[in-house]
Write a protein that binds this DNA or RNA. Structure first.
Lengths: 234, 234, 234, 234
DNA sequence: GATGAATGAGATTTCATTCAT
DNA sequence: AATGAATGAAATCTCATTCAT
């Protein structure tokens, strides 16, 4: 049984759901306009993507509150008002960026650990987190920065990761790999915090440690913490 | 030699230093007015303290950016302008609150671990952090929340704690308690993140776990992580 | 050679330069939108002009410091924030008004004295200053009022006029019309002050003297002082 | 007959009158306290004078609007509230400074021209103005700077000087020294502006011209203009 | 859809003035 | 009289959001 199956039982809360803006049915879709329409639709997606990319870059660099919708629009090369044709407001945009990144991370962790179990799955998870951080440093900065106004979102991110972690822990506890003296809920928070902090610290300045050192340390700390004597696993 | 002695050699950077409130030199304290002066001075301190208390409460509840200087003044029961008689601006106030809390926490950790070493010191540290969180939940929320604009401050807090942690780890490594395969710098970040996350999570809703469960889990995770097999230490 | 050619070699200092309103490059003027764009551009200029007119009126009546940006916006019939879409702040607006007026005055003086020289040019200059004051009393009030905060600007105005005057004096001295005992630099300041004061005084209440009396007196005083026998000089 | 007799027929308007603040009768003047009282009264005058000196210096340096009552008090070495024990508000203080300076200038001009008449009186007047500017540059800067909020006061200063000038002109016209084509009211404004401007310009940077050059130029221009025959008038 | 000028609520900050001690 | 903390009105400036073209 893969822990992945349990990991995401926590659905996105209604108020955080990403409602795609591009749903409105095209009002006048006269036959001969199909091509024009699809061209238009493509343009729309391009603009949408550019806005999101611009926002990601700016949020990562300056923080959420120090970026204006005008900044984002300028960064995307569109007019100020265009922003609101794609996103209801700044929060929605952030939500979209964060939830997308979170889903990506989860997918990558799932894929990495596919077919593994126990200690091996944990190692794969650590590796995939580090890989994700290397490839998408900007988005990681956003994911793990908490600005209070968006605490709801921040909490959702950490809780999603912690829930996943907790499910893994419970499974392993059931299997007798972890002692019954470990409280999965608390331990899950601890491991999430541990990873988030190290990843944030390392992402800010990757020269601080080699990729391998980060992986090894995360793995060892995590494993030997819950498995006790088994550090010798190595 | 106690590691505690080394732990806080990292002085507060100049730009974060809390300048004492009594900056302005008292121009002339004529003889017969001493009482009046001291009464005024006392009142001033009271107002200062009330502003700080008001700000602490509000910052913890709503975050820095969602609290106006007027809110703080209102919470303290003084006029809007009074704020600026005591603090140059919001940042300065936050800085004062945070650095004060950080110093308090450090002091408590030092006192708690006095005379202990090795595993015992670690346990005392964990206990004092949890105790601090129980008594001063509000300030802990501020300490462990990061808003990007104050990243500098946030970084200072975490680094101060991580530096402390790192010095403990290095000492124990020297003493052979920890294997040489542990990178103290990374591990220190990890442990700091682990503690900060759990404390933040628990402080938000203390009913989530008992005090003892939190202490035990933090202790166990931390210890068995670095000590490997020695979890049996207990 | 006309002295007018020399008179305004003093360029506007960089920090006082009026940056053209059309700074922001128009990003992309798609073909079919030209009309819409130009309509918007026209509206923008109208708003800009209304703000400037409103400010001119208010500054003349109440002085720079007693006029708020809100007053100016209200006077122009736009919202408060609109002010800042057109001018970085009040100073920039004042600068624009003053430098524009100064340029206009200079142009009118140049045109009036075109083809004249010596005494005739002086007379034309006096006439054009008086005419300018009659037509644009408000702006003249601003031009010749000095508020210390804007001393830089005030100094620029008077020095520009004085420089012009000085160049005229030097030319006439070269031509032997003026004795060598006259120090052009000092005399230029004197004549500038003389004209500014009379114009300001008269503009405040034009019923104080007829236009002709003002012109005659300015002309006579400048040329031959109060004792001068020969107003008949001409 | 001295023109001085006519010069100050314009009394200070009621709203500009300096009402001494130190008028309140001493409530409890028990016999044996005379000395204490007089010592106190002396102290009061000292404080009053220091406030005025502080204000004069600051106004001259930074302009009226850029000086706060706190600045003035600090400059005088007293507490903020003390300011209001001596002056009803900032305006009153400025008024006191300006009217005092104006009275001083007038007195010096009177004394200088005592016994002189005609051209000689004019020369003496010019000399005394320049001397005043040399000795009391600060106050002159205040006297001749116009900030719109205090236009009333500024107008009073210039009109006082212009009135004086006008009376001189009328006298000389009566005596046949000046032609009937000169309008005394306008000419008086012109001469006042001329002097004020040159004095202001020179005071800002006395190295711009020697004292004698300033006097000679002011004198010559006033008497015979720039074209005037030779200053042979003397 | 895109544009970008306009909107207006709201936050920060200053400072003349008062008043309890 | 002097003190200096407190007051609170007022000004500047920003920016999320709307809307006519």
């Amino acid at each position: 049984m893969s822990v992945n199956d349990d990991g995401f039982t926590s659905p996105v809360p209604a108020h955080l759901a990403v409602s795609s803006t591009a749903e409105r049915p095209c009002p006048a879709a006269a036959g001969s306009q199909k091509e024009a329409d699809s061209a238009r639709a493509r343009n729309r997606l391009v603009t949408h993507a550019r806005l999101k990319a611009s926002a990601t870059e700016l949020f990562a660099a300056r923080g959420l509150r120090n970026v204006t919708t005008h900044d984002i629009a300028r960064g995307a090369g569109v007019a100020a008002g265009t922003f609101y044709l794609h996103f209801k407001d700044k929060r929605v945009l952030l939500r979209e960026i964060v939830l997308e990144a979170l889903a990506d991370l989860r997918t990558e962790m799932d894929l990495a650990a596919r077919g593994c179990s126990g200690v091996d799955a944990t190692r794969k998870h650590v590796e995939s987190v580090v890989t994700f951080a290397e490839r998408r440093g900007e988005v990681v900065r956003i994911l793990f920065s908490h600005e209070n106004e968006w605490e709801e979102l921040q909490t959702h991110v950490l809780n999603t990761l912690a829930d996943y972690c907790e499910s893994v822990l419970r499974t392993q506890q059931t299997e007798g790999l972890i002692g019954s003296d470990v409280a999965p809920a608390i331990a899950a928070q601890a491991i999430t915090g541990l990873q988030a902090r190290v990843i944030d610290w390392w992402t800010k300045d990757p020269s601080r440690a080699t990729r391998d050192a980060v992986i090894e340390t995360l793995y060892k700390l995590q494993l030997t913490g819950v498995y006790g004597p088994a550090v010798t696993a190595e």
